[in-house]
C-alpha cells in the first residue's frame, strides 16, 4: 500500500503544480497565489518519488484494511441521523449500538455510557459554552 499512497501523493503534487500557474506566480511585485502551491507541489513530487523508491525497495508493506470503513461509516451515520433527531441524541444511539453490538459490552455498562456521555456533552457544550449543536428536523436537543 505504501506504493499506492506515495503515488497518490505524487499525483496530488502534480495537480497542485498545474493549478498554481492559473493562480498567478508573481503578481504586483510579490508572490502571487500560485507561489506556495508551486513550492508545495514540487516538494511533494520530489519526496513522493523518494518514498516510492523506498517502497519499491522494501517490497511489502501493510495493506489497506477495510475495517477502516467501520468507524468512518458509523460517524457518517451519526451525522445523517443528527439531521433528524439532533446531534446529542444520535450520538446516544451510536454509543448504544456500538457498545452493545460491536464491542459486545454488558448491557449495564452500555446504558450507563449511553446516558452519561451525551449528558456530559450537553452540559458542557450546550449549557455552559452555549455552542448550539444541531437539533434536527424534529427540533429536540
Amino acid at each position: 500500500m505504501k506504493k499506492g499512497v506515495s503515488v497518490g501523493f505524487i499525483l496530488a503534487g502534480v495537480y497542485w503544480i498545474v493549478m498554481s500557474f492559473s493562480y498567478g506566480l508573481w503578481v504586483m511585485n510579490g508572490p502571487g497565489g500560485g507561489f506556495m502551491p508551486l513550492i508545495g507541489g514540487i516538494l511533494a513530487v520530489i519526496f513522493g518519488i523518494a518514498v516510492l523508491i523506498e517502497a519499491i525497495k522494501e517490497g511489502t508493506s501493510p495493506s489497506f484494511d477495510f475495517k477502516v470503513l467501520i468507524p468512518v461509516g458509523a460517524l457518517l451515520a451519526v451525522i445523517i441521523l443528527s439531521k433528524l433527531i439532533g446531534l446529542i441524541l444520535s450520538i446516544a444511539v451510536y454509543l448504544f449500538i456500538w457498545l452493545k453490538f460491536y464491542e459486545k459490552e454488558s448491557t449495564k455498562l452500555t446504558i450507563l455510557v449511553t446516558i452519561l456521555c451525551p449528558l456530559a456533552c450537553y452540559l458542557i457544550f450546550v449549557m455552559w459554552l452555549k455552542a448550539p449543536l444541531p437539533r434536527g428536523i424534529l427540533g429536540i436537543l
Binding site: L116, L119, A120, L123, I124, M127, W128
Partner: peptide, 9 residues
Amino acid sequence: TLLVGALLT
C-alpha cells in the same frame, strides 16, 4: 464533576 459543572453553569 458534571453535577458541579451543571451547578456552576
